[in-house]
Design a protein around this nucleic acid. Structure first.
Lengths: 146, 146
DNA sequence: TCATTAAAAGACTAAAAGGTCTTTTAGTCT
DNA sequence: AGACTAAAAGACCTTTTAGTCTTTTAATGA
């Protein structure tokens, strides 16, 4: 669904939010290990997100990454747009420049609703909602395995 | 939806089928021009599809590309699998190795139905069905503009 | 203030995707 | 046979994506 950079960004941000909920501020070493992604690559991605104001960071001992107040409410769509600003998610599946209900490509009728569902998904989900689902899942698994 | 190579392959195959319907066997020059794609790149893609037995070709004057008997009934999914054999279209959107209804990632509930719709789309559509829609569209446009 | 810690900066490399071009092979037509 | 036409083969190049590593900057705390 996403490219590697976006995928790592989402996983990292969700992990940061989950940890922030536990009053902890994870560093890259920990984040990369937990989300199973290359350390230096994740570092680069997070540095960019800090510059773009999505997250905050603190250097030195006890440092790490965290969300300021309600910043975790950022949608997945906003994150995608920050990471791949040129990507057009409304593109025609057949590759036509002009493709709509009035001038449909052979995929249009079936593909348009799918594209809309994807847009709905990335617009409705935020780092916060994903983190909540993640916590829920972890709790259920722990409970079930007891 | 697709990468460039797959996209050009689909457009080229649909164009070939449309022309075959008019008892014509287009060459690369014509195909590349009509589907608005780089000539040598399309040539490379079609050469591979000939080797893989999807289409047939004839060299020399009056030559070009064509489908044998019912070969245009090939599904889009089969074409994708020939061009990108390693691609896994059932991958988890969050990047988990293990992700299903019992062990869902935070995207799973919303993303699984979308993935299924895409699979349904590429399984049900063939070069032939796309070519028929393409012809239909062309006819309607011509009729409407008269 | 100095050692330690951890993020920031940025140069560098590797692999994959996308694209171009030349030469060879196999047909057709006169 | 010889000229011509068009696909096949394959070398080569460019851009993008993915990933690595070293050095610098800034904060902490003994």
């Amino acid at each position: 669904m996403f490219n590697k950079e976006t995928e790592y960004a989402i996983r990292a941000l969700v992990y940061i939010q989950v940890q922030n909920g536990e009053s902890s501020r994870p560093g890259i070493e920990e984040i990369a290990k937990e989300i199973d992604a290359p350390k230096f690559y994740v570092a680069k991605i997070l540095q960019r997100l800090v510059k773009q104001g999505v997250i905050q960071s603190i250097k030195g001992k006890g440092g790490g990454f965290y969300f300021e107040k309600d910043r975790a409410g950022i949608t997945i769509k906003e994150i995608i747009n920050l990471i791949e600003p040129s990507k057009d998610r409304q593109e025609c599946g057949f590759g036509l420049k002009q493709c709509d209900a009035n001038n449909p490509c052979p995929f249009h009728d079936k593909y348009a609703p799918i594209r809309n569902s994807i847009d709905e998904l990335i617009t409705s989900e935020t780092v916060l909602t994903l983190a909540q689902k993640y916590i829920l899942k972890t709790h259920r698994t722990v409970t079930e395995s007891e």
